[in-house]
């Protein structure tokens, strides 16, 4: 994939960090405000898509990015199911909220929900990036 012009590259360099932090904010405040794992994960995936579109990449990099994305996606999924399993092991019910609930409306509250949000964010971020690669760079990763 070819990169874009210098203007786009400069602007991207400036905003890309802020977008990432915004995504993290959405994820971590998922149990307090609208947003959460899915919305934040989409923003995180957007960061990677933006980087790839702006700076371009070689076929080799795209293939390794696709591999990494699929591994991270699995890690997110595993984390989510593991949290559910931990509920079964520690408290006897699948998916039970086994952590202390904390004070409502504070960042450290709601038990396992922030952890689930993070797991979902990893899965969605990596998954959407993998979808992007499959659609945009399909010629290179079609054979594995």
């Amino acid at each position: 994939m070819k990169g874009m012009s210098l203007i786009v590259k400069t602007v991207t360099n400036i905003v890309i960090g802020f977008i990432f932090i915004y995504g993290l904010y959405i994820i971590l405040h998922g149990h307090l405000t609208p947003g959460g794992g899915f919305a934040g994960g989409v923003i995180i995936a957007g960061v990677f898509v933006l980087k790839l579109l702006t700076f371009g990449s070689k076929a080799k990099d795209e293939r390794s990015a696709s591999t990494q994305a699929s591994v991270w996606e699995s890690i997110g999924g595993l984390l989510f199911v593991s949290v559910a399993f931990l509920g079964l092991l520690l408290a006897g019910t699948f998916f039970i909220n086994f952590l202390p609930k904390g004070t409502p409306l504070h960042l450290l509250s709601a038990g396992i929900i922030p952890i689930c949000n993070i797991a979902i964010a990893i899965k969605v971020g990596a998954g959407l990036f993998a979808i992007f690669l499959a659609l945009a760079a399909q010629k290179y990763i079609i054979e594995d």
């Binding site: 699929s70 699995s74 999924g77 595993l78 199911v81 593991s82 399993f85």
Partner: peptide
């Protein structure tokens, strides 16, 4: 009962790794 769903789901995510 939840194992019927959770086990295949877990292994589905483990397989790519």
């Amino acid at each position: 009962i939840p194992l019927f769903i959770a086990l295949p789901l877990f292994s589905a995510f483990l397989i790519p790794i």
